[in-house]
Every structure is written in C-alpha cells, then in structure tokens.
C-alpha cells in the first residue's frame, strides 16, 4: 500500500507576520519558511504506518515554487521514500490543489492520502475535503487517532462535541489534527540520504490540470487590535470592575 502525503511551504509558525502597508499582502521576503505543522504531523503518521508494516511506500508531494523542494527534502529526511514536486509560481487555491492531487492519485494509486487539516497561512481547511470529493473517496478530517485494519481505517476525529470515531473504507483521504502524533526530529544522516532520494517534477500542464476559478484577494489589512486594558491590583478591584460591566 502506498501513502501519499501532501505538504505545503508556509511562513514558520513562530514568525510574527506583518501586513504590508499598501495592503498587497503580508511581508514574506526572507522570512523563515517551514513545512506547515499539520503536514508534518501527516508525514509522521504516514511514516508510522509504514514502520508498523501497514504501508510499503510513503510519497511526499508539494505544489509550489522551486523553493518548496526544501519542504520535500524535510519530508524525505523524516523518512518518506520519494517525492513529487508540482512546480508553479502561481497562487494555488484549495480547489486547484485538490485537482492536482487528484491527478497524482490517478498516477500513483495510493490507498491513503494524508494532509494537514489546514495550512497555517491561509487557514482554509479545505484541500483534503475537496480532494475526497473529486476522487469520490471517503474523508476523515481532523484525525487525532488512526488505526488501519485491512481495507478499513478507523479514525478518531476532534470535533466540537468531543471525539468522533468513523470507519472509512480505503482508499480514503485523511487530514491530521495536532494531537495525532508528535513529529520526530530529523536525523542528520537522513538529511544526507534525503538528498539522494528522487523528486519527480511536474507542471500543471504535464498533469493536464487546469486551475479552477479562484477567489480574488482584493486587499489585505491588519486586524483591529484590542486595546490593552488595565492591570488591577486586587481581586476586589477586579470584582468591582466586572460588576460595573454587569458581568459578575
């Protein structure tokens, strides 16, 4: 069984992003970029399935500019067997990403496609679900636990009401939530080995994928900031203040 894992290059989660003054986006020049943390969890889960003998091959895929090969190298260093880079300098929105991944599904015929539940840049939380729709596969989103048993995956999902468990027939799309696992630290020898692992590169045209109509970003602005309030010295003071607002 093959597992395909999609990873995205995003601004590192530690970076305090800044909205550009002209409203044209957020400053990203020279800013530290990393693999989307949810995707890292997805890669880790795929590798654990392989290490548990439930999968033979883990293929990492990314869609993005040349530099996103860095994130593929990270996935390869973590232990993915090979990688696919769909190279494009365009802004790829979820529906197009799903189309691309669907085209790769046709090529690779994986049993599981793992993705992070959302990318921390656009916070869309869509690609996995859209891919499942296009492929006509089951989806198990926001996974916090995954058990693969033959042709069925039992997935525990973090939902607003608690923990929901569903069973999905494979092949399926699974999106990872934060508590699914803790990704490993990459070992230095594996960084070196990753260099020798193959990365196949395609363009959208190679895959016969046409970009979907996209949502147009008209402007980017900084959020309204909350005014810092006051520090009170005592509990009594706090209680009085809250009572004044009718909250206590």
């Amino acid at each position: 069984m093959k597992i395909l894992v999609a990873v995205k290059r995003v601004v590192d989660f530690n970076v305090r992003i800044q909205v550009k003054a002209d409203g044209s986006g957020v400053a990203s020049d020279g800013v530290k970029m990393s693999m989307n943390p949810f995707d890292e969890i997805a890669v880790e889960e795929a590798l654990r399935l392989k290490e548990a003998g439930k999968a033979e091959e883990v293929i990492a895929i990314t869609i993005g500019p040349k530099a996103s090969q860095e994130q593929l190298r990270t996935a390869l260093a973590m232990g993915a067997d090979r990688a696919i880079h769909v190279e494009t300098d365009e802004d790829i929105q979820p529906l197009t990403a799903a189309r691309i991944l669907n085209a790769i599904i046709d090529k690779e015929e994986p049993k599981i496609v793992m993705l992070g539940k959302q990318a921390i840049d656009d916070d869309n939380n869509q690609t996995a679900q859209m891919l499942a729709a296009l492929a006509n596969w089951p989806q198990a989103t926001f996974a916090s636990q995954l058990e693969v048993d033959g042709d069925v995956a039992n997935v525990t999902r973090e939902v607003d009401a608690g923990l929901e468990t569903i069973a999905v027939d494979l092949p399926a799309v699974i999106s990872a939530d934060l508590r699914l696992n803790e990704p490993r630290y990459v070992k230095l020898p594996d960084i070196m080995k990753a260099k020798r692992k193959p990365i196949d590169t395609f363009t959208l045209a190679d895959l016969g994928v046409e970009a979907a109509a996209s949502v147009k970003v008209l402007k980017t602005s900084a959020p309204a900031t909350r005014q810092a309030g006051i520090k009170v010295e005592t509990v009594d003071e706090l209680v009085v203040a809250l009572k004044e607002r009718g909250l206590f």
């Binding site: 979820p94 916070d123 869509q126 602005s221 959020p223």
Partner: peptide, 29 residues
Amino acid sequence: VPQISDIMRVESPRIFDRPIYAGNAIVTV
C-alpha cells in the same frame, strides 16, 4: 467552485472579509 472559509464580514453578496494567519491579517476576497 472554490469555497470561502470563515466569513467575518459581508461587504457585498460576493465580497467578504476573512481572517488568515491565525487572525493576524484580514483579507477582503
């Protein structure tokens, strides 16, 4: 069709504000 996540303000029937980067920026789409 594409999907728009997390509408936080409606400007017109097709134009909306939504948060990105954990709410550290707002895009009008």
